[in-house]
Design a protein around this nucleic acid. Structure first.
Lengths: 271, 271
DNA sequence: CGGCAGATTGAGACTAATCAAGAGGAGTGG
DNA sequence: CCACTCCTCTTGATTAGTCTCAATCTGCCG
């Protein structure tokens, strides 16, 4: 495990420049809570390819991905690696259960993660409801994303799966106008994620190229030349390019105090 | 939507006989909390095949599955239905995000669900940390289960996928000694869940039968005649038949009061 | 320059989908 | 009671799509 850096950021300082404060768990926190969170965590950097948590390894801490992509994979007895999921900025890594029984976390790109010891994490959540809400919102969002991913893979052949995944990537990175998409994953990882062989993935990429939906500028650089055609090839023709700005729950719902046993209506729903 | 019954159970009374109190969300609650929860929810019964929540329908309530199996599916523009997941006893249905964007919930068997209006749900969670912990534990467990399911499907052909799924079912229903497994899902639903056609599923079942791993007593009744062979056929040979009793978080961790701004160590980790 | 790993392309083998049709059961109406 | 329809489950033959194996190409590093 390579730890390129292991810093406890000054309150607010590091977070200011962190893109994850806009996304996922940190994005759900208000400034005050974020500051409190910052003092409890320490940021660790991992270089591409390094192992974050081994399979079967018990993790006694919870992490929020500050930058980069984390590969959630499993290695079978026969030695094959299967990429189950790619976690990104703002998502929770190492939540209880993860890694506990057969998943490994690996840095798919250079990654930095804000770790909090399990005990401190629990204490932070218990401080006030909005902290818990941030956590539940994150979990729900991640659960949902997984389901959406499965949806995108189902009932599609290899070319359609690739096209569908590229569409999702476009939305996620928000590259609607500038049609250039960088795919930091290796062919091997992407193929595994999309449940196909490297060779088939390669053919699928070139098929999209041949049909003028994309242009392969470099091995890891895709230009989306015709997003409409890409949608058709993904079997998702009627999808409007609606913004995907994750709908965070209304922060005005933050109640800093807890109710007693009396049943009080909360100021607003969680989401 | 068929509502065969719609009852507000008396505190404790209905819950006593409910199997879900041992599992999932309700299983994480202590007796007092469970009683409080019971007065807020109303149980609704759905007969097999009835729709619980339509695709795109906004759900303003949260449900805990009291009994039966709930099918989480999506219907594409071309009219094909894809079963993404089967939710069972004790799991959360209709969490925020679900149904919001393309999933439908349908009763795969006769089902009863304890519903709580969103607002009351949030209020319940905010009452004290253990309630939130029960929720986060449930979410994490469900997230994990989804990942395990994907793991079971990856890198396997149709026969292996079926065998793998059957193994999971054995563990879940705890039928280790008495080797009889009832599969309440229709061939159509099961095939969709396992990502194959009905025809292929049928052939896979009979292949397991031919190889003496199982015996098909009835169309929905499987006798596991040789669990070791079944493991081999599932490409999961080295799996011990370890109990899967979901590891619930230690209930002694229940803290009925909340900490202030000071950082206090919680009595025990969440899980 | 050679060695190496990843990416690409090609040809044949094999899996699972598709199309087609039969078997069995449940419900309906005469 | 039977004839009829409808639906699910099952089985068979054909075909399309992927995987496998193999070879070549590319860029990178020493």
């Amino acid at each position: 495990m390579l730890h390129d850096a292991n810093l406890r950021p000054h309150v607010g300082e590091r977070c200011q420049s962190c893109a994850a404060t806009k996304n996922g768990f940190c994005g759900y926190l208000d400034a005050t809570s974020l500051a409190k969170f910052a003092v409890r965590c320490h940021r660790t950097a991992y270089s591409q390819g390094s192992e974050i948590a081994g399979q079967g390894e018990e993790i006694d801490k919870v992490g929020v991905i500050a930058s980069g992509l984390v590969k959630l994979a499993t290695i079978t007895e026969s030695g094959d690696e299967f990429v189950l999921q790619i976690l990104h900025e703002g998502q929770i890594a190492g939540a209880p259960g993860e890694g506990g029984d057969g998943f490994a976390l690996e840095a798919a790109t250079d990654v930095s993660i804000c770790w909090v010891p399990r005990a401190a994490w629990d204490a932070f959540l218990c401080e006030k409801p909005p902290h818990f809400q941030a956590y539940t919102s994150s979990l729900t969002a991640q659960c949902d994303e997984t389901r959406k991913f499965i949806m995108g893979m189902r009932g599609r052949n290899t070319v359609q799966r690739l096209a569908s995944w590229l569409l999702d990537q476009c939305k996620e990175t928000g590259c609607e106008e500038k049609p250039c998409l960088r795919v930091p994953l290796s062919r091997r990882d992407l193929a595994s994620l999309l449940d196909m062989t490297v060779e088939t993935l390669c053919r699928a990429v070139h098929q999209l190229d041949d049909r003028k939906a994309i242009r392969l500028l470099a091995s890891d650089l895709f230009e989306i030349t015709d997003i409409v055609k890409l949608r058709v090839l993904a079997k998702r023709p009627n999808e409007n390019a609606a913004p995907v700005a994750a709908e965070f729950f209304d922060n005005s719902a933050n109640r800093d105090s807890w109710t007693g046993d009396d049943i009080a209506m909360p100021a607003a729903p969680l989401r």
